[in-house]
């Protein structure tokens, strides 16, 4: 029985570890500035936890087999433990866990506490059951106010967001269903929701933030690789949660300017 347990526990350990180490399934390639650090921190945590995982599981299986009761087994040792070992173990784990944690806090801080760069591209992200809308402030750099009373989700676009069209800032506000971002520019994103909580999750950009009705949450990030990336809603928001999908197109500055100018022209 001890051998069977050892076999199963070791097998589970090797198979589980294999798929992690082989990276059969892994984080999608990162396409934003933060990805470098996040992926490094992930890999570091993975290696450290992986060592503990393998060591603990292998010992568990080994002890089960090694100390099984059989005719010639040594008598059990009468021991209530070892105070010094307990202290060593406690201190080591505390240093490891807390150290890991402190290392991880830098990127978190920079995305949230530092103000965005002065030339950051402003985009407003709005979640609603079950679509994402993106608003660009246009040449004036100002978003027009919105009003709940004007919101008409079934109409889509500007009407869905309830933009106060009489406001002068509204003239050049662009609303789209696909997010366009210039590469290597800082993006100053403000996130809102009109109904329930959604979560704006772009795995490739290592970006996730809940959008909460009543809050306007500011974050900033910098996409670094041109490409098309999928948005998946990550907070249960109702029947169509699984369909609340969108795209981010990270393009060159030139293409971005062209795209924005075309939208402005369409609007006028």
């Amino acid at each position: 029985m001890g051998l069977a347990l050892l076999g199963l526990i070791w097998l589970i350990t090797f198979v589980s570890t294999y798929f992690f180490v082989a990276k059969t399934w892994w984080l999608p390639p990162g396409a934003a500035e933060a990805a470098g650090f996040i992926d490094h921190q992930f890999a570091l945590t993975f290696v450290l936890m992986g060592i503990i995982f393998v060591a603990a599981q292998l010992s568990l299986g080994y002890f089960a087999w090694r100390y099984r009761e059989h005719a010639s087994a040594a008598p059990a040792q009468y021991s209530h433990g070892n105070g010094r070992l307990e202290i060593v173990w406690t201190v080591l784990t505390a240093i490891l866990f807390i150290g890991l944690n402190l290392m991880g806090s830098r990127v978190w801080a920079s995305q949230r506490f530092d103000p965005p760069a002065a030339d950051a591209v402003k985009v407003e992200v709005t979640g609603m059951q079950f679509a994402w809308y993106f608003r660009y402030p246009g040449p004036d750099g100002h978003f027009a106010p919105t009003s709940v009373k004007l919101m008409d989700p079934s109409a889509g676009g500007e009407a869905a967001l309830g933009i106060v069209t009489s406001d002068p800032d509204a003239k050049d506000d662009i609303v789209t269903g696909t997010m366009y971002l210039p590469v290597d520019r800082e993006i100053d994103v403000s996130l809102r929701s009109v109904d329930v909580i959604h979560s704006f999750f772009v795995p490739s950009l290592r970006f996730k933030q809940d959008t909460v009705p009543g809050l306007n949450i500011h974050m900033h990030f910098r996409p670094t690789v041109i490409g098309e990336y999928e948005i998946a809603c990550a907070e249960l928001c109702g029947l169509g949660h699984y369909k609340m999908h969108g795209m981010v197109h990270v393009v060159s500055q030139e293409d971005f300017d062209k795209w924005l100018a075309a939208r402005e022209a369409e609007k006028q």
């Binding site: 010992s59 040594a74 433990g81 070892n82």
Partner: peptide, 13 residues
């Protein structure tokens, strides 16, 4: 401590 308990025991399965 759980591993320590099994260590040098005489385990019945």
């Amino acid at each position: 401590n759980w591993l320590g308990t099994m260590h040098k025991g005489r385990i019945r399965f």
